[in-house]
Design a binder for these strands. Structure first.
Lengths: 124, 124
DNA sequence: TATAGTGTAATGGTAAAATATAACACTAGG
DNA sequence: CCTAGTGTTATATTTTACCATTACACTATA
């Protein structure tokens, strides 16, 4: 996994796991890879993984069972709620950034539209 | 100025100055505030300001004249080019993030649209 | 020439993130 | 009971960002 050195790795690990949960790769009740395995996969230290997991446990998005493993919460509401929150955060951020670059609401929308259109022609 | 502790301050200073340039507060050829003044304004250390400016000087967006001050480049092409780049970066980022959250192109667009609409009702 | 305003750079210190390493605690299965 | 797999915690070390402070280099001007 490639990391952006502008933001803490443990933070990016959280996002990585969020994505796994959102795309269904990790469903409710699913067991996460062992912390040591995650550390190897992400080429990162166990403590760093643990820090990310610790925050997610506190949040309630995953639940830890000592000796067994870490599991995605069975509370599907919490997951959909989390997704909503993550989407809003992204929208908020891009809106503020582009607004700060002096784009109008209209321009922000159309710029994203044309970006997606062009992207559709070139990629995937 | 409020800083997000998840990303380096010198990086946020760059963005701050970019915004000043984009909104025309700092036009081509304009003199930037003195580094010590910037440091005071942003409640930040001179070295931190200098680090941000250093990168912008390397990029060519501002030009330094020892003993005189720092100046926005006269090359207006570079500025518009920079704006394009910053916008694209933001679009790319939000697209990738929302795509990773399993939203379709359609959903990404409409979610931003409704976000802006709701925002228009509530804020400013 | 002296001085004030400017950019530039070096030193040393603090804090946070990440690392390597080791140890401890619990569970399941032979 | 023992062992392998798991989560948890602790210590020490390195790196990076940031800060405080000081000094140096250049420009303009009185």
């Amino acid at each position: 996994m490639k990391f952006d050195d502008k933001v803490p790795i443990y933070y990016q690990i959280k996002n990585y796991l969020y994505h796994e949960m959102m795309t269904g790769t990790l469903g409710p009740g699913d067991k996460l890879p062992a912390v040591r395995q995650l550390a190897v996969d992400l080429t990162v230290n166990v403590n760093t993984v643990q820090r990310a997991l610790g925050e997610m446990i506190t949040e309630g998005t995953i639940e830890s069972q000592r000796g067994k493993g870490n599991f995605v919460t069975m509370d599907t509401n919490r997951i959909t709620q989390l997704k909503e929150q993550l989407v809003i955060e992204q929208l908020e951020r891009v809106y503020n950034e582009l607004h700060a670059l002096n784009l109008t609401d209209e321009q922000i929308l159309t710029s994203l539209q044309t970006y997606i259109e062009r992207r559709g022609q070139q990629h995937d």
